[in-house]
Each structure stands twice: as C-alpha cells, then as structure tokens.
C-alpha cells in the first residue's frame, strides 16, 4: 500500500510518503495506527495523539474502523484548516 503524510504528520515522520507492505493481522485503520506507533520514535511522535489524527483511504475521509487492503492509498494528517 501507499502511505502519505501531510502537515504536522509529515514533519514528525520526516517523510511525505512511502510504500509499505500491509502487515499480517492488520485489517483496519485503527490497527494500522497502532502498528505505526511501534515503528520508531518519529512514527511514535506522529501517531501518538489518535484524537488529532485524520485518515483518508483512497482519497476519501475514513473512520478508524474502516477495512483496508494492500492496494490502498492511505493518508494521515491533522484536522484540516483550509478556507
């Protein structure tokens, strides 16, 4: 799958995005977030505050319980502030 990071999440991970193999046993967004927290200090910092994390799956806003697959584009970002 393709992971994308925006705004403060991008700065904390130090990445704009990456290709990543969906790990075994992970089937939804909430599980993926928990997994990401364990990938190192930069990921822990970016993914620690679940309440401030917003998710899009294939460019549509998604909830933590949404099912994901290895072909998805999954984006993580803080609440939007446009306009």
């Amino acid at each position: 799958m393709q992971l994308l990071y925006f705004a403060s999440v991008r700065e904390k991970t130090g990445l704009t995005g990456e290709s990543y193999q969906l790990p075994d046993g992970i089937s939804n967004v909430a599980q993926l977030i928990e997994h990401m927290q364990g990938r190192g200090a930069n990921y822990a910092a970016a993914f620690e505050n679940n309440l401030m994390l917003r998710i899009a799956v294939n460019q549509l806003h998604a909830k933590p319980e949404q099912t994901i697959s290895d072909s998805d584009e999954i984006a993580f970002f803080p609440p939007v502030t446009g306009g």
């Binding site: 925006f6 705004a7 403060s8 609440p79 939007v80 446009g82 306009g83």
Partner: peptide, 26 residues
C-alpha cells in the same frame, strides 16, 4: 460551500510569526 470546504477539504495552514512557524489549529 465554505462551511464544508473548511471542515472537509484537505488543506493545512502554517503561520510564520517572527522566527517561529506553527500549524494553525482547527
């Protein structure tokens, strides 16, 4: 349109004030 744009369109603002930069809170 403005109300939904502000809550759904994926834009993020960062302010530069003096030497500091910070993301704008929702």
């Amino acid at each position: 349109l403005m109300d939904f744009l502000k809550s759904r369109a994926p834009f993020w603002k960062k302010e530069e004030i003096g030497e500091e930069s910070q993301w704008v809170d929702a």
